[in-house]
Simulated scan of single mutants.
Amino acid sequence: MSDEMTTILTTTPDGLETEDAGVLIGEVELRSTVTDDGQASAHARYPHTEQWHTISGATRHLDSPAHLAIYHTQLVAQHLPPEQ
């Protein structure tokens, strides 16, 4: 099991709200991580940049770290426009 998953996507027109960089719009890389005790969080950045930004409201406690794939898939779906 991996403790990190990433996906590159194009956001909805409203963008992706972050805690420290405002709204990211367009193509972004989304990264979900989970700790051994099930604390999941998500970060985003523009592809090919170094700094990750915490996604607002995305921190969750998972019943098991094995549920990271479900968390990540739901997070990606939440930020995709309907046509993707």
Rank of each mutant, 00 (worst) to 15 (best):
R31P: 00
A66I: 05
S56Y: 07
A69P: 02
L30E: 02
T6G: 11
S41E: 05
E27V: 12
T49V: 07
E19I: 09
E29R: 06
Q51S: 09
G22H: 06
R31I: 00
T18D: 01
V28T: 06
E27N: 10
L16I: 03
E50N: 12
H72I: 03
W52F: 05
V28R: 05
T6I: 14
M5N: 04
E17H: 13
E19V: 04
A58S: 15
D3Y: 15
V28S: 05
A40D: 01
E17M: 10
E19G: 05
T10W: 06
T49M: 08
D14I: 10
Q84V: 06
G57L: 02
A66L: 12
T35D: 10
T10F: 09
Q74L: 15
D14E: 15
Q74M: 13
L30H: 10
A21C: 01
Q84C: 08
H72M: 03
R31D: 01
E29S: 12
S32L: 04
L80S: 03
A77V: 07
T73M: 02
L62T: 04
E17D: 12
Q78K: 14
L30D: 08
E50Q: 13
Y71C: 01
L62F: 14
A66P: 00
A40G: 01
S64F: 13
M1A: 15
L80T: 02
